[in-house]
Write a protein that binds this DNA or RNA. Structure first.
Length: 817
DNA sequence: GCGGCGCTTATACC
DNA sequence: ACCGGTATAAGCGCCGC
């Protein structure tokens, strides 16, 4: 039988001690099917020298290995001597095939550290990754599959154990040249409970949202309610029906928001409490939770996606939202938020309150669904580019994405994969501490006119590519054909081979693909072309950090330290070149330089740019970021030195670019943020402080008359750890403690809301004046004036030689008397 | 009791 | 613990006087 097939989900099973891969996906007709594929697990033994005879001898020895473990007999099935590359060297290697991947590590250990052996590798790559890497059956790509039907007894009855109508055993799987698109069937869900703590309370309702699916399931007996509400006898029946609805809807993706951490484990815990089985998935076995820092809930045949995980790990870089909660993120991406519901009502619910609650619950599932649709192009592109299963793509962090991209592209370089560092190795890498990073030029405070900003395109990736910086090109000492990188001021020197390494080469490809797809996007603007271009951009940007990350297979601290040393050299030299053209360079941070245009024309500026570019090596490239008619730089608090990473610019198109100021910091109250924003805009527009000063005066007056809304005085600070772990009890920790005393559930990551009120009895600590938003207390005028409003605007006015404190005191004293 | 200062903590920039 | 370093700044908490 032959059909078109797109793999969506991957898992594996053993039969007769051997590994098989189970692919779940759709046919061109839209049927969800299962395809079982064989795989020959293997790993590599890398030899110290090229002698074929020795290789044969070792291979012979290895092929006799036979071990028994966990009731399984595992042996070497065959060996293959091959010429491969490993970390920049040509090596004679033996590919060792074994019966079961799970025993690869043990067999590798059994081979041991023979004197002829350099290294043993790839036994630590997960089975599914190895399978995709070697058989090239990649997720979300269309294939022509030739296969036999699986009978109910084949492979110990795996076809029988799942609810899919069609199961096959693959004879061949061939990629289809013309890749057709794929639109997944998505179902979103959300639950509401009586208690936030896992399993402590009951699930009151479950909402489901998808195409032709709009339901709220509950067991609350409400006489008259919305048509989408279905009422069940009890919690158990509600949960049972939920699983039934999900299974029969047959989605490719079941998605929730923070559902790995809440909805799915809660459903499982509630089922256990009800002594029932949660029959989710094609095997009706319910979710399986992986161990790890954050556990992930996997459902057979349905890809469970916690959108929060993907947004947190990958997508948040595009977002402006102050929190990554569903409300903020949905508002930003789809222009629709959560409904309001007062959870205090839960103690005493009227019928109409229940109706509101149902509606709230459904809305959450609805925005989750819309969010999933919105982000799908990015998930899809990431999956196809990185080539890992959808389930993992939506949970892995950037370092893992970079690493998986490398792993899946190594074959093109005939390269054997490096091993993953062990726990101790990671520990010693971390002990090395940090190395010197980028250069930041201190600005002179002032209001400047006609500013030009140049910046290097893809600075870190282009340095790594241009100088061939990587683990496999790193050399201990100065050999011939090596590049020497001096770490200035430390008399350290690092050496890198000039012969192209696979890492820089792959990175170069990524940069070129990014360029290509950026152009394609500009020609054909749609979410998919945009997502593709963005995915390559993110990959390129994360690759510098990857090499310095202690958990990386291709960790190379020397490459990281060299990249930053080269970056400092570049930016300083470029600053000098710009100065030579008699420009006043006012600021620089890492890869960008701001300078005054002076009397030069735009054309002359472009000429300067071209001149600098003509001398840049490799793929290094300086770009014109923009022209800015005005820009403001301020001093550090209570110091004359200029503040780095803090400035406000007015672009020619009339947009304001504000960086680092309290305006953009979420841990300042809105009063201070909005006022500062207004003052910055006013100063940049007018070129003087006159109007801004008036604005300040008005706000101060209002503040003193207690006319400011409490909402504008609320301070939001994230709780980064659990309360007991704090050495220093800051205001937000005091607020968190107060919340805990009220019986609220506090967990790390939460944003704590509080304000500072009057309190004459206690000490002078700010923490003694902390109140929760709903507490009745007068706001502390002195605090908001001296610790919020004035600090936010002082150094802006200082640029104009205006001391706001003196002015305001004079002003208020007149009023007082 | 008070000022100084180092440390802890959160957040931003690139 | 799940990409890096550079930087600002508030507020606590300890020390010495």
């Amino acid at each position: 039988m032959e059909f078109k097939f797109i793999p969506i989900d991957y898992d594996s099973f053993d039969f007769d001690g051997k590994n098989y891969i189970r692919l779940i996906g759709r046919t061109e007709k839209g049927e969800k099917i299962c395809v079982v594929d064989s795989y020959e697990p293997n790993f590599w033994v890398i030899l110290k020298n090229q002698d074929e005879k020795i290789a044969e001898k070792i291979a012979e020895k290895i092929s006799k290995i036979n071990i028994k473990s966990k009731g399984r007999e595992s042996k070497v099935t065959k060996t293959k001597i091959q010429d491969k590359n490993f970390l920049g060297k040509k090596v004679k290697s033996i590919q060792v095939f074994v019966t079961n991947h799970k025993d690869a590590h043990e067999i590798a250990s059994e081979i041991g550290d023979l004197k002829e052996i350099e290294a043993r590798r790839e036994y630590d790559i997960p089975l599914i990754t190895k399978y995709i890497k070697e058989k090239k059956v990649e997720p979300l790509k269309w294939y022509t599959v030739k296969a036999d039907n699986l009978g109910i007894e084949d492979f110990g009855g795996i076809a029988d154990a799942i609810s899919l109508d069609k199961c096959f055993y693959a004879k061949s799987i061939k990629e289809i040249e013309k890749d057709e698109k794929f639109e997944p069937k998505i179902l979103a869900y959300d639950i509401e409970t009586t208690d936030i703590e896992l399993g402590k309370g009951d699930i009151l309702m479950i909402s489901l949202y998808g195409k032709n699916m709009k339901k709220v399931l509950t067991w609350k007996k409400i006489t008259q309610t919305q048509e989408y509400v279905e009422i069940f006898k009890n919690q158990a029946e509600m949960i049972e029906k939920f699983a039934e609805y999900v299974n029969s809807y047959d989605p490719d993706i079941l998605t929730g928001y923070f559902s790995d951490g809440f909805d799915l484990p809660y459903l499982k815990a509630a089922s256990e409490k009800e002594k029932m089985k949660l029959l989710l998935g094609i095997d009706k076995k319910g979710p399986i939770f992986s161990r790890g820092r954050i556990s992930s809930g996997k459902i057979a045949g349905i890809v469970h996606i916690d959108l929060y995980r993907f947004i947190d790990a990958v997508f948040s870089q595009y977002l402006q939202s102050e929190t990554l909660g569903l409300g903020d993120v949905a508002q930003e991406l789809i222009g629709e938020g959560k409904e309001k519901f007062d959870f205090d009502k839960l103690k005493d619910m009227k019928e109409s309150d229940w109706k509101d609650f149902f509606s709230y619950n459904l809305q959450d599932a609805k925005v989750t669904y819309k969010l999933a649709e919105k982000i799908w192009p990015d998930i899809y592109e990431f999956t196809r580019i990185i080539k890992e299963p959808l389930f993992d793509i939506t949970r892995d962090r950037m370092a893992t994405h970079v690493e998986n991209y490398l792993l899946h592209n190594l074959d093109r370089f005939n390269e054997i994969a490096e091993k993953r560092p062990l726990h101790e190795e990671m520990g010693s890498r971390r002990e090395l501490g940090s190395y010197e990073g980028a250069f930041v030029l201190e600005p002179k405070p002032g209001l400047y006119e006609k500013i030009v900003i140049f910046d290097f395109t893809s600075f870190w990736p282009s340095i790594i590519v241009s100088y061939n910086l990587s683990r496999s090109t790193y050399r201990e000492k100065n050999e011939k054909n090596t590049l020497e990188v001096n770490i200035e001021g430390s008399n350290k020197k690092y050496y890198f081979s000039k012969e192209n390494g696979f890492f820089p080469e792959m990175l170069n490809e990524i940069i070129n693909l990014r360029k290509k797809y950026k152009i394609e996007y500009s020609k054909n603007k749609n979410p998919l072309t945009k997502a593709r271009s963005n995915a390559y951009k993110l990959l390129a940007n994360a690759s510098y950090g990857y090499q310095s990350f202690f958990g990386a297979r291709y960790y190379c601290r020397e490459a990281g330290a060299s990249a930053t040393a080269i970056s400092r050299d570049f930016i300083k030299k470029t600053i000098e070149q710009i100065k030579e053209e008699s420009h006043n360079v006012i600021y620089s941070d890492t890869d960008s330089i701001a300078f005054l245009q002076g009397k030069k024309t735009n054309k002359e500026i472009i000429n300067l740019l071209e001149k600098i570019n003509s001398n840049l090596p490799g793929i290094m490239e300086l770009d014109l970021e923009d022209f800015y008619p005005r820009g403001l730089f301020v001093s550090k608090r209570s110091m004359t030195a200029g503040a780095k990473k803090k400035y406000a610019l007015l672009s020619e198109s009339g947009n304001f670019k504000i960086r680092g100021f309290e305006t953009v910091r979420r841990d300042w109250c809105k009063l201070a943020r909005n006022l500062q924003n207004e003052i910055l805009i006013s100063v940049l527009k007018d070129g003087n402080e006159k109007k801004a000063l008036k604005v300040l005066r008005e706000v101060v007056e209002k503040l003193k008359k207690r006319e400011i809304k409490k909402e504008d005085l609320i301070i939001r600070t994230q709780l980064k750890r659990s309360i007991k772990d704090y050495i220093s009890t800051g205001p937000h920790v005091v607020a968190a403690k107060k919340m805990e005393e009220r019986g609220l559930h506090i967990n790390p990551g939460m944003i704590i809301f509080y304000f500072i009120g009057e309190n004459s009895t206690k000490g002078k600590k700010i923490g003694d004046k902390v109140y929760l938003p709903d507490e009745k207390a007068e706001y502390n005028i002195e605090y908001y004036l001296n610790n919020q409003v004035l600090p936010a605007v002082e150094n802006i006015f200082e640029v104009f030689n205006v001391n706001v404190k003196e002015i305001l005191e004079g002003h208020s004293q007149k009023k007082l008397f």
